[in-house]
Design a protein around this nucleic acid. Sequence first.
DNA 1: AAATTGATGGGCT
DNA 2: GCCCATCAATTTC
Length: 211
Amino acid sequence: MATLSLDFYQSHDTLTLSQLLLGCELVHESPDGTTAGIIVETEGYLTDDPACHAYRRQTTRNAAMFGPAGTLYVYQIYNHYNCINVVTSPEGIGEAVLIRALEPTEGLDLMAIRRNDAFKTGFERYRNNTITIDTADGQRNLCNGPGKLTIAMGINRQTHNGASLITSKLFIRGPVLHDFDMVTTTRIGITQGVDLPYRYYVKGNRYVSKK
DNA sequence: AAATTGATGGGCT
DNA sequence: GCCCATCAATTTC
């Protein structure tokens, strides 16, 4: 399946893209190896939406959101975690799609190594945690949340915030999942705009972070 | 089973 | 100083 083009990111509004990205495959061809997973859960953030990081003004943190469509916005949340967004608005406007969960398809062993390394260097209380991919539960645990998938895919703020999904080693391939039912609901973990139905996920998919 | 809480970085309200 | 688009252990029905 072909890599999504600039034209694709430019041709739809943010909420449409939030839905169209479901079933597409996020791929990272890193120096350590390739990992990939099907996007099964997204949230849209709009410029007139109080929950959006770009709601007020451009700052050093949210600057990438004001880049062209197809730019990656990576931000840090709650200490050690990062979350990734696809910018979906023209340059100068800050809208994006948060990728909240992946169904892993490639490089599960590398994902587990990265998650386990993160446990060792992360919060002291989780240092003894281990993920194994021998079980279905272990595999489900790799990428079923925005903080987890960012670790498993080897994405970090330093090298990926502001990067282009069109020209870099991190990109999205066109839909590999077809004919699924989609659930539309409210977003998770926010304190503003809590009633807006901007969260979408693949119905029945076991890798979705939360029902 | 569900609700609560601790960890403690980095950018601003 | 204060506030988080989280994760996983712990506590509480």
